[in-house]
């Protein structure tokens, strides 16, 4: 429970979230979303919720990224807006 570490991870999570919704290339957005999940996992683990961190690392970092990449390959890589 070191609040400086919490604050550092929170800043990194915010940077990753803002980058993921602002970037035009969807494949880069998926990779940044994976980094978002990783920092979120570190934040959970640092705050003592190890089981939630485990689930976040297993689901959001691996399986969600694979599903997003599969969806991008079947549709288009460029964002329209």
């Amino acid at each position: 429970m070191i609040w400086q570490l919490d604050f550092l991870f929170l800043i990194l999570v915010l940077i990753c979230a803002l980058a993921a919704i602002n970037i035009k290339d969807l494949l880069s957005a998926v990779i940044i979303l994976g980094a978002f999940s990783f920092f979120m996992c570190l934040l959970w683990a640092e705050m003592g919720a190890v089981d939630v961190a485990f689930t976040e690392a297993a689901v959001a970092t691996s399986v969600c990224t694979i599903l997003f990449v599969g969806a991008i390959i079947k549709t288009t890589r460029r964002s329209k807006d």
Binding site: F54, A58, V63
Partner: peptide
């Protein structure tokens, strides 16, 4: 920490690695 859900997802990740 861990359990059926997390272990099942890690098993799926190994299958997805073979798939890729």
């Amino acid at each position: 920490p861990g359990g059926g859900f997390q272990g099942g997802v890690i098993l799926t990740a190994s299958l997805a690695l073979i798939f890729l």
